[in-house]
Design a protein around this nucleic acid. Sequence first.
DNA 1: CTATATTATCGTATAACTACGATATACGAC
DNA 2: GTCGTATATCGTAGTTATACGATAATATAG
Lengths: 119, 119
Amino acid sequence: MAYTKAQLFEREDIDLAALAKALSHPARIAILKKLARDNVCICGELVTDLPLAQSTVSQHLSELKKVRLIKGDIDGAKSCYCIDRTSVKRLARLLENLFEEFAEGCSTPPLITIKEKQK
Amino acid sequence: MAYTKAQLFEREDIDLAALAKALSHPARIAILKKLARDNVCICGELVTDLPLAQSTVSQHLSELKKVRLIKGDIDGAKSCYCIDRTSVKRLARLLENLFEEFAEGCSTPPLITIKEKQK
DNA sequence: CTATATTATCGTATAACTACGATATACGAC
DNA sequence: GTCGTATATCGTAGTTATACGATAATATAG
């Protein structure tokens, strides 16, 4: 039988799932946090920081780039990556929608909302 | 060599990654949203709602339960699931931390784009 | 141009995920 | 008890993810 039926769901759910998948490995979370801290970061720094081989780091970067959470530029022989704030905002919006539904569904206490504090 | 090195990362990153993985399939997002809307929901309703076999839905429910985003109670022959607000709050907190880091990172967009690497 | 440094990509092995049908289990009705 | 319903679990096939080393590609240094 077929393998995935993911495309049979609602667009928004598919989008959020794709972004969540990008966050579903601690290495990629760590990469995003470092990129955020340093604002920009060359690949080599990530390789020395993470307990992973260079090719594996490159692979993780590629995944993050695929969903546009980061973008990369070539600077000489090195690659500079930075957070793509547009997509981060999109992720924040999708998460907000989700958490709103959580909040609506029940009368129990307040849910923390994801606020967008950027710039 | 080993397969996963996920456990070598920081606790918080591992936790967030695990929760994000639970959100990384549109079916599970849809399940969470329905559980939130109905506050409580029996498994059968989910099966008729989703374009998936009963066993597959049960599997997705199991994954959500594994990270405690939902909890289930047996009500006779049926199973009632509902959102676990405690874990949802934990997820919200972890996401907040992440987004805070994003916000703290520099606001200046880009760096000098030299050129596109291609092959 | 050659050598070195940096990063991306390829090939590959293994683990995990997705999905289903079949089966097991547990309950309620009878 | 048996029958039917509702869920969970097992077995499994195919797909995707993780990880590495090896190699290719590109830029800089000499």
